[in-house]
Amino acid sequence: MTEADAFADVANLPGVADAVAEARAAVDRLLGHRILRRRSAEVSTESALRGARASAALEGASVTLDELRTTENPGDPIVQGALRVSAELGTLSETWRQAPRQALARLHVLAAADAVDSADLGRPRTGDQPVTDVLKVGTTPSPSEVAGRLDALSGLLTRPTKAPALVVAAIVHGELLTLQPFGWGDGIVARAAQRLTLVSRGLDPKSLTAPEVGHAELADDYATSLRAYASGTPEGVATWLRHCSAATAAAARDSLAICEALLRG
Rank of each mutant, 00 (worst) to 15 (best):
E260P: 15
S255R: 10
P205D: 11
G75R: 05
Q102G: 04
A99M: 14
L157K: 01
E212H: 14
L157A: 02
R227C: 12
S142H: 15
F7A: 01
R50M: 10
N73A: 06
A252F: 06
A252K: 11
A210F: 14
D204L: 03
T45G: 15
L263P: 05
L256E: 06
E22W: 03
L92Y: 06
A257M: 15
K162C: 07
V213C: 07
L263G: 14
A190D: 00
E260R: 15
T239N: 09
Q80S: 10
R253T: 14
A105H: 12
P100V: 03
L156G: 12
I258M: 11
P130F: 07
S47C: 05
S62R: 09
R191Q: 00
S142Y: 09
H33M: 07
L121I: 05
P160S: 00
Y229A: 01
H215G: 04
I35C: 10
L135K: 05
A170C: 07
D66W: 09
G51H: 07
G174E: 03
V79N: 00
R191N: 00
V213K: 09
P211Q: 01
L89V: 06
A170P: 05
L92E: 03
R24Y: 08
C244Q: 00
R106N: 13
A228V: 08
A23C: 01
G185Q: 13
S154I: 04
R39T: 04
G232Y: 06
A41P: 11
V189A: 12
G81R: 01
Q102P: 02
S245A: 14
L13I: 08
F7H: 01
L89C: 07
G148Q: 12
P143S: 11
A152W: 12
E72D: 06
R69C: 08
E88M: 10
R29T: 08
A87V: 09
S154Q: 02
P164L: 03
E145K: 08
L153V: 02
S118E: 15
G174M: 06
T248C: 01
R195Q: 14
N73R: 08
F182T: 06
A230K: 15
L153H: 03
R125M: 09
R191V: 03
A61I: 04
A105V: 10
L135M: 01
A19H: 08
G183P: 10
A250M: 06
D18A: 14
G60W: 11
D28C: 07
W240P: 13
S55Y: 14
A8D: 11
V167D: 13
S207G: 06
L196V: 00
E94L: 12
V213G: 10
K206W: 08
S245N: 12
I35T: 15
